[in-house]
Amino acid sequence: MKIKVWINDKAIATHIDGDTMLIDVLREKGYKSVKCGCDTTNCGLCTVWLEGRPVLSCAVPAARADGKHVTTLEGVAEEAEAFGRFMAAQGAEQCGYCSPGLIMNVLAMAREMKRPTETQIKEYLAGNLCRCTGYEGQYRAIRNYLAVTQGDYQLFGKGEVIEGVR
């Protein structure tokens, strides 16, 4: 069947099979930030936005994206890079394989929630798995990114010094 999808605001028409997944269309069209990290719909690496909402592109039938807007990391490159600097400042990544999915979900969270609490952050990101780290570096990077971009240094309070903000 034929579908038309806006990928990062660019209209793309393509032919798909009934069981083609969104991730396959995205990779075929060159959006290689989108990767598959598991067989079980669990890891979050394949996260993209469908009409602005984070979804697992490995499990969304491509047919469901017909007429819709999809955003990948390539479409939010500037923000992704800005957040990436916070990650680097914390030495958060080891292999870095999990980062594209995490970044897409962090940016989605930042749009959806203002000044999320620690619990809210951890809940929102629970579906992004990392095999190398213990999440602590990422968490510090996220805190600092939110503190700077959402303009509230009080949020994480308790007189903590925010490190690594560049």
Binding site: N42, P54, L56, A59, N105, Y124, A126, N128
Partner: peptide
């Protein structure tokens, strides 16, 4: 609902 896989999963 909050512990079912992840936000991305529950969006679908």
């Amino acid at each position: 609902l909050k512990d079912i896989v992840g936000v991305q999963f529950r969006n679908t």
